[in-house]
Simulated scan of single mutants.
Amino acid sequence: MIEVTDFKNAMSLLTSAVNVVTTSGKSGRHGFTASAVCSVTDAPPTLLVCMNKASRSHTHFIENKILTVNVLSADHQHISRVFSSRMSPEERFEHGIWTELKTGAPVLEGALVSFDCQIEQIQKVGTHTIFICHIVAIQQSQHNQGLIYFNRAYHHVGQAEIA
Rank of each mutant, 00 (worst) to 15 (best):
I2E: 15
I2D: 11
E3V: 03
V4D: 13
T5P: 04
T5A: 15
D6E: 15
D6Y: 09
F7M: 14
N9I: 11
N9S: 14
L14N: 14
T15M: 14
S16M: 07
S16Q: 09
N19V: 05
N19W: 02
V21R: 06
V21A: 09
T23L: 03
G25R: 04
K26I: 01
G28W: 04
H30S: 00
H30I: 01
G31F: 03
F32A: 11
A34W: 03
S35A: 10
S35N: 05
S39W: 02
V40M: 07
V40K: 02
P45A: 14
T46F: 07
V49W: 00
C50K: 01
N52G: 11
A54L: 11
S55T: 04
T59F: 02
T59H: 08
H60F: 10
I62F: 05
N64Q: 02
N64D: 05
K65G: 03
K65I: 05
T68L: 01
V69S: 00
N70H: 01
A74E: 07
D75K: 09
Q77P: 02
H78C: 06
H78M: 02
S80Y: 05
S80P: 06
S80D: 01
V82A: 11
F83E: 03
S84K: 09
R86C: 04
P89R: 04
E90C: 04
F93L: 13
G96N: 05
I97Y: 05
I97D: 07
W98G: 14
L101V: 08
K102C: 08
G104N: 08
P106K: 05
P106F: 00
V107N: 06
L108K: 06
G110Y: 04
A111T: 02
L112T: 04
S114F: 06
S114D: 11
F115M: 12
F115V: 11
F115C: 08
C117K: 02
I119W: 00
I119N: 07
E120Y: 00
E120M: 00
E120P: 02
I122V: 13
Q123A: 00
G126P: 13
G126A: 14
T127C: 08
T129V: 10
I130V: 09
I132V: 15
H134M: 07
H134G: 10
I135R: 03
A137W: 09
A137Y: 08
I138A: 04
Q140M: 15
S141H: 10
Q142Y: 12
H143C: 09
G146C: 09
L147C: 01
L147F: 13
F150I: 02
R152N: 12
R152I: 12
H155P: 12
H156N: 12
A160D: 13
I162W: 08
